[in-house]
Simulated assay, not measured.
Amino acid sequence: MPGTYRWVPACLSQRSIPPGALRVGTDADGDEIYAGRAHHEGDIVPAKVIPTKNACYISFGGEEVLKDQFEVLVPSMFAWQFSTNGEVPPGAVEAGSTADGEKLYFGRVNHDGCTTPGKIHPSHACCYYPFDGEERSSAEYECLVLM
Rank of each mutant, 00 (worst) to 15 (best):
G91M: 07
A28I: 11
G91P: 10
Y34L: 12
Y129E: 03
C126E: 04
C11T: 07
D112I: 02
V145I: 15
C114I: 01
V88H: 13
C114A: 14
K48P: 00
F78A: 08
G36H: 06
N110Y: 05
G101M: 12
C114S: 14
N85P: 01
E87P: 07
Y34D: 13
V74A: 03
V74L: 07
I120W: 10
P46H: 13
S16Q: 14
E41I: 12
L12A: 02
P130K: 02
T52V: 13
H40Q: 05
F60G: 01
V49H: 06
L104D: 09
R15V: 05
S76M: 15
W7T: 12
R108K: 14
E142L: 06
K67I: 13
D31R: 10
Q81P: 01
F106A: 15
E94K: 13
D43R: 11
P9W: 09
I120E: 03
G107K: 01
Q14T: 07
G133M: 03
C56V: 02
H111F: 11
K119Y: 02
I17D: 04
P19C: 08
G3F: 03
A35K: 04
K67M: 14
P130L: 06
P18Y: 05
S83D: 15
F106K: 14
L73D: 02
G91C: 02
G91Y: 10
A55I: 06
S137R: 13
G86E: 03
I58F: 02
S97K: 08
G61W: 06
Y57G: 03
M1L: 02
Y57A: 07
Y5A: 14
A139N: 15
L104H: 13
P90Y: 09
S137C: 10
P2H: 09
I44D: 10
W7M: 14
D29P: 04
S83Q: 10
